[in-house]
Simulated assay, not measured.
Amino acid sequence: MPDEEVEVSIIIPVKNGEKFLSFCLDSVLAQVQVAVLSLEISIYDDGSIDETSKIISYYQIKAKENGIKFTASYGAISGGVGYAKDKAVVQSSGRYLCFLDADDIMSSNRIAKQYKKAQEIERNGNLAFIGSCFERLPKNATERYTRWACNLTEEQLYTQIYTAFGPTLIAPTWFISRSIYNQVSGFNKSIKNGFPEDLDFFYKALSLPIKLCRLEESLVIYRYHSECATFGVNEKTIWDIRIKQIEKDILSKWSKITIWNAGKQGKKLYK
Results as ranks from 00 to 15, higher is better:
I11D: 11
I11W: 04
G17V: 05
E18V: 05
L21R: 04
F23Q: 13
C24A: 09
D26T: 00
S27V: 02
L37C: 04
S38A: 05
S42R: 10
D45R: 04
D46P: 08
G47D: 07
D50S: 03
S57W: 09
I61R: 04
N66L: 02
G67S: 14
I68H: 01
K69C: 02
G75P: 04
A76E: 08
G80V: 02
Y83F: 15
D86I: 05
K87H: 02
K87A: 11
A88S: 11
V89A: 01
V89D: 00
Y96H: 06
C98P: 00
L100D: 04
D101F: 12
D103A: 12
N109F: 10
N109Q: 08
R110P: 00
R110S: 09
Q114K: 12
R123E: 10
S132G: 08
E135P: 00
E135I: 01
K139P: 01
T142L: 07
R144F: 13
N151P: 07
Q156C: 01
T163E: 11
A164P: 07
G166R: 09
G166F: 11
G166N: 10
P167C: 07
L169A: 00
W174F: 05
F175H: 12
I176R: 03
S177M: 00
R178I: 07
I180C: 08
Y181Q: 04
Q183F: 09
Q183Y: 14
G186C: 09
K189T: 15
S190E: 08
G194A: 10
E197A: 02
D198T: 11
D198G: 14
L199G: 08
D200T: 00
Y203R: 06
K211N: 13
L212Q: 14
L212N: 09
C213I: 05
C213K: 07
C213T: 12
R214D: 11
R214V: 14
E216I: 01
E217W: 01
V220W: 00
V220N: 06
I221R: 03
S226L: 00
S226D: 05
C228M: 12
A229S: 15
A229N: 15
G232S: 14
E235S: 12
K236A: 12
T237A: 12
W239I: 03
Q245C: 11
E247T: 13
D249Q: 15
L251E: 14
K253Q: 01
T258S: 05
N261R: 08
Q265M: 13
L269S: 06
